[in-house]
Simulated scan of single mutants.
Amino acid sequence: MKGETETISDAKIDTTPVQAAMDHAIASGAETGLQVCAYHRGRKVIDLWGGIADPATGRKVESDTLFNVYSVTKALTATALHIQAERGLVDYDAPIAQYWPEFAAHGKERATVRDGLTHRAGVPQMPAGVTPEMMCDWDAMVDAIAALEPLATPGEKTLYQSMTFGWIIGEIVRRSDPAQRSFRQFVLDEIAAPLGLSDLWLGIPDEAEPRVAVMTNRNAGDPLPDGTSLYIQSMPLAVALVPEVFSRPDVRRAAIPGVGGIFSARDEARFWAMLAEGGELDGVRFLSPERVASFSAPRSNSEEPDPVMFGVPIPISAGGYWLGGHRVTSDRAIWHPGAGGSIGWADPDNRLAVAICHNRMFNTRDPAQDPILPITRAIGVALGLERTVA
C-alpha cells in the first residue's frame, strides 16, 4: 500500500484505519486495486492507493492510475448544467425543448430541465438497436433520444435514466453554450482546467490508455433480468455497463456523459471538494453557496418507487445527485454511485469530499458484504467525524 498523508491545522492525520480497510479489502480478494482520496475543509488529507491495476501483467495501481467510474460521471454532468444555470443560460423550470427543440417530439414538449435532472423526463430507455459504435457518436445518440416516445408523461413518474441522463443533460449544456463546444470540451474548459485537473476524462486521449486499470466483474455470472424489463431497456445488453463494452478503445475515447467517466481518485475528490466547499475551491468560484445548498434538498416525490430499479426508490436530490444514505457521512451529503461499487461524495455538513475508485466490479445487496463501506467508515474515523443525521 502506498500513499500520502497531509495535515489539518498542523496536526498529522492518522490514515491507519483507512489503509487497514483497504488492505483487508485487497487481501480478502473482494478488491483488486484501489485509490482513496479525501479533502477536508478544502485540503487534501487522505491520498492512498494499492493493489493491482492489471492482473494479467501484475501492473500495480499508482497515484495516477485511471479507473472507469460509470454513473459517478452523472455528478460531473449535472454540475456542468448547474454552471450554465449559474450563468443565467439555463432555467431549471424551462422546457428542455426551449434549448433543444427536437426533444419535443412525441409529447415530450413539457419535459423540463428539472425533469431531466431528477429522472422524470419519461425516457429512461435507450434507442432501439443501440450499439457501442452508436453510443460513441454524440449526434446519433442525441438525435435518437430526441425521437423517443416517452414511457410516461414527462414530469409525472420517476424512471431512472441509467444511460440517457448523460445525453439529455449534456445536450442541454451544449445547446446553451454560446461557444457551442462539445460537451467533452465544455467539461475540460469549465471544470477540469479551473480546478487544475488533468485526469477527469470524458473520453481519454491515446496517451492515457496505458494508465487505465483493467476492470473485472465479480457478478458476471449472475442471472440477468428479463430482456423486456425497464432495467434492461435502460441499459441494453449490447451496451451494458461491463468491462467487455467499456474497455473497448472506441468507448474509452468517447464522451459518454452518463456512465463513461474515467477518473483518478485524486482528481475526482478535488471535483467533489469544490461542491463540499459551497461551490468554490482555492479562490475559484463555480457556483453560489445558495445554489450548492439547494442540492441537498430531496427532489419532489423522493419516496416514489422506481420501476426501472425494480420498484426501489432512488434517493435523488433536487440537483440531480444522490442524497444521504448509509454509504456516506451525512444525510445531506450529495453523492453518486457507479455500477460495480465506485463512489464519490460531497458532505457540506463536515466539509468533506471523498472519491473511491476500484477495478473489481461488484453489486451487493447486503451492506455487510460491501468492501467499500468499511473504507468509507474508516475515513470518518481517521478524521474524527461522526455521521451527521439530518
Rank of each mutant, 00 (worst) to 15 (best):
D10H: 15
T16S: 14
Q19S: 11
Q19D: 09
T32V: 15
V36T: 11
Y39W: 15
R41I: 00
G42A: 03
G42F: 07
K44Q: 11
K44D: 03
L48R: 15
G51H: 10
T57F: 06
R59W: 01
V61R: 00
L76N: 06
A80T: 06
L81D: 06
H82T: 03
G88Y: 06
A94E: 03
A105Q: 08
H106T: 01
E109L: 05
G122M: 10
G129I: 03
E133Y: 05
M135T: 05
W138T: 01
D139N: 15
M141E: 11
P150W: 08
L151R: 14
W167A: 01
A179E: 15
Q180T: 10
Q180A: 13
L188D: 09
D189C: 10
L202E: 02
V214L: 12
N217R: 08
A220Y: 07
G227P: 01
Y231R: 08
P236C: 05
A238P: 10
A240D: 02
F246E: 07
D250G: 02
V251W: 08
P257I: 06
S264E: 02
S264K: 10
A265H: 00
R266N: 09
G279D: 03
E280N: 13
R285W: 03
A293D: 11
S294Y: 05
F310Q: 09
I314H: 12
L323F: 11
R327N: 10
G340M: 01
G340A: 01
D347P: 08
R351P: 02
I356L: 12
N359W: 05
A368T: 13
A368Y: 08
D370R: 14
E386I: 05
